[in-house]
Amino acid sequence: MKPALPPRATRGRSLKLLTCPLNGSRNISEFTYGGEYHATPNHLTTSARDWAEHVFFHDNAAGVVTEWWCHTASSFWFLAERNTITDEIIRTFKAEEIYTQRVDFSTINPESRS
């Protein structure tokens, strides 16, 4: 017997919606997916392997994940918690919840890098 399909966010609706924290509820076609959210490692102390992991690789986890999304009409980037199994959006929120202050990158001395 086939297992029952999980409920999908779009089931029973003709339109899939996403709520932008700035602009409100909009058609999903107004948004662009921006990849998984991960805390940025300190680029001065992290290893090359960990930095490559952060930049290029994804967890691709089954379950609730945090993702970057962009409302393309306003170029507004925000975060969404989404269940990748059910495609349910749990909540969306502004990046200011995580980034409470301006991020400045100090330069590294090339000679100090081994």
């Binding site: 602009n23 909009r26 058609n27 076609s29 409302h71 009409a73 306003s74």
Partner: peptide
């Protein structure tokens, strides 16, 4: 409203 009008931002 910052949105799509005739498929144009």
């Amino acid at each position: 409203a910052q949105t799509s009008v005739a498929k144009t931002n």
